[in-house]
Write a protein that binds this DNA or RNA. Structure first.
Lengths: 302, 302
DNA sequence: TCAATACATCGATAAATATCAATGTAAATG
DNA sequence: CATTTACATTGATATTTATCGATGTATTGA
């Protein structure tokens, strides 16, 4: 065989293996459904291409040469590789192939991140050839990348609505008001009234919080921050009061660095959404994964 | 693609990869040395067989689909497997393939066994696909198996000549006369005369030993044994004298259990042969290995 | 020696494949 | 809108492949 294996060679190899399995040219006629003379010609053709004899055959019986045996081994491996390839290539017709770009905001509750992981695991069980690309960005960034198509699905809190994006509610995150250890209210924290907290300094978010506006009484805002960590720093200083997610504040509370002012009184809930571009931009991969994401969330509430 | 990868598909896959590597149909004309229309038809044919689109192409440029990328990966692996197979199949033309059956007798000197190992190592450097099957048997058995073809090469001492076998001298083994620790001659051993040893009891081999007959004076044989260990047992009893190979007796001498009577006086040499059937029965493998065996022995004496 | 067995060889024929040149189609550009 | 670019489609033609049936060859067994 000069150069690469051609299609003809593959055919001849299959004929050879059929002869080996049948134990001779004559019995192989049935398997191959062609005449003895055709098989004989094809075998000879293969031997000519290879440059050596594969089997002794004739009145005295059929027997592989040493080289024929070794060649048969190699040939079976090749046929198997080819068969695997065919199966994979054929399967790809029904299979989802490509990448899925997901964007998350930071400090999502561990339990919710676990939901995303569950959805990914469930998706992987479909045996699809999809690679996940996950990035963490602020909400504004996420929206930008959604619009450009760099990110296909985002999960987080979004304070406004971009008209060309689709928002689906996934879960609720509770924000509670806290004071730091050095704050004058620290010793009495737990059951404070609106009057007791009203004139103290509060740290607030620099972006609108519609859910908070509706549920929080008038307070004296003297500091602004554009993310959760910044708010936490201000509160931990012992100078400002402010709202933080319960799951984020929990370790600090445990260490006695923060205390809730009055959880029953000073709290608001924010919804986390799954955001995508509108349906006409959905790939098959997206559709399938969104299904799995929904199932995971329904399963928890069901 | 229905069933196995059929004829034409390998060719079509190669066309697809050439188009991918060239970055489009038009540039691939050069690589493939056919016209654009031919390539277009072949690509479409492959896509039809697969049932999905492999690439987007036209005025707006060339780009692989997600499935096209995955398929290209798989296809490259297949082409490589095919290439490996071709190389192996082609190499087998020049290669020795099969098994080599070698028979040895037991207790060959370590240094001589090392020679066989050297010859095998040297042979393996030919990068041939030959499996070695080595068995250990008495000389008569070895000859039998040689005649039947079960063994192709035997190495050992053979006291007679079978007409249809070919004997080639490999090395000489020296036999020396010893007495055991409890024997009356033990205290004076080392320089005994023929008269001093003549009337004592000797153990001898139950098969002819032409080399010994010529070199050993008349002695009083009162025991026979058909192998070396049996002779050794008789000598170690302290009752008989007898001849043993030097290399075999050496550890016993070291432990003071045996002493040579007079090495300069009471010894004979036996040749070890390599035995095969006559040349017309020699396979290529045998011929090549015998070459290597000769080289190893010449190297030592040269 | 003859007949049976298991291929090997050969010529004829039909079918499949590969390619080209001409023309059509869709998208991008000025 | 007209032109250019990058393919897609089509029909004609030459080449290659696959197969059969007839016949030849070598080996084995009675």
């Amino acid at each position: 065989m000069l150069g690469n294996l051609s299609d003809l060679d593959l055919r001849l190899i299959r004929v050879f293996l059929a002869v080996v399995d049948a134990g001779g040219v004559t019995p192989a006629q049935v398997t191959l459904n062609v005449g003895q003379s055709t098989i004989s010609t094809q075998l000879s053709s293969l031997e000519t291409r290879l440059g050596y004899r594969l089997c002794d055959r004739g009145r005295s019986g059929f027997a592989l040469t040493a080289k024929g045996e070794r060649f048969a081994e190699l040939a079976r491996s090749l046929i198997e590789a080819v068969s695997d390839f065919s199966a994979q290539a054929r399967n790809m017709d029904k299979q989802l192939v490509g990448t899925l770009n997901i964007g998350l905001i930071g400090h999502t509750p561990i339990s919710q991140n676990a939901r995303i992981s569950q959805a990914i695991a469930r998706f992987k069980k479909r045996n699809e050839a999809v690679r996940f690309l996950i990035s963490v960005r602020p909400p504004g960034d996420l929206e930008e990348h959604l619009l450009s198509g760099d990110i296909e699905i985002a999960v987080g809190y979004f304070w406004h609505r971009v008209p060309t994006l689709s928002y689906t509610s996934l879960f609720i995150e509770r924000q509670v008001a806290y004071c730091g250890k050095g704050h004058p209210l620290y010793e009495h924290a737990g059951n404070l009234s609106a009057e007791e907290v009203a004139h103290h300094d509060w740290a607030w978010r620099s972006y609108p919080l519609p859910e908070a506006q509706q549920n929080v009484p008038d307070i004296n805002i003297t500091a602004e921050a554009d993310n959760m960590e910044a708010v936490a720093v201000l509160i931990l200083s012992g100078y400002h009061l402010g709202y933080l997610p319960e799951h984020f504040a929990a370790p600090y509370v445990q260490q006695g660095l923060l205390r809730a002012l009055n959880p029953g009184r000073f709290h608001y809930d924010v919804p986390f959404h799954m955001v995508t571009r509108h349906k006409r931009h959905h790939t098959d991969i997206m559709t399938a994964f969104l299904e799995d994401l929904q199932v995971v969330h329904l399963g928890e509430t069901g």
